[in-house]
Amino acid sequence: MSANHRDVINAVISVLQGLDLRSFGVVDVVERDYPFDAKAPPCPAIVVSMLTEGEHLGLNNISDIVYPVQILRTGHSLNNKGGAPRASWRGAVRDVFDYKRLGLECELYTKSRFVEMEYDAAWKSYNLDTSGMVVSTIVRKVL
């Protein structure tokens, strides 16, 4: 049975929890739906959210599905005490996911890419410093 989006997000959380989170200025990894509702996301934290699936090129009888997961680091200010610079956490997270495999069934590979360095909406709505990454796992599924 091929892995699904739930398996991917669980694997991503598991990998993140194995990192030195304190060096990113956070202590916890939490999952939240995105976009955030009226309530502010947890802070400081690594916030993991499911993004919309996509379809990769496939063969006949086979679909390759892309399962993207957004990873945000939230902090109270840009220069919070003990917090790593934005570039530092993004680089560390990229390294553990880019061109890697998460050990999932029928996983082709996992890639990571940088997205927003600063989410204006988070800053304006919740007074949070938020920067992000997106990790995408491509899974092969038999039709």
Binding site: S2, N61, I62, Y99, C106, E107, L108, Y109, R140, K141, V142
Partner: peptide, 15 residues
């Protein structure tokens, strides 16, 4: 026959 899609049947990548 069922299309086999275990790990050794998955393709290599360029990199």
């Amino acid at each position: 026959p069922t299309l086999v899609m275990t790990q050794p049947h998955l393709p290599y990548t360029h990199w």
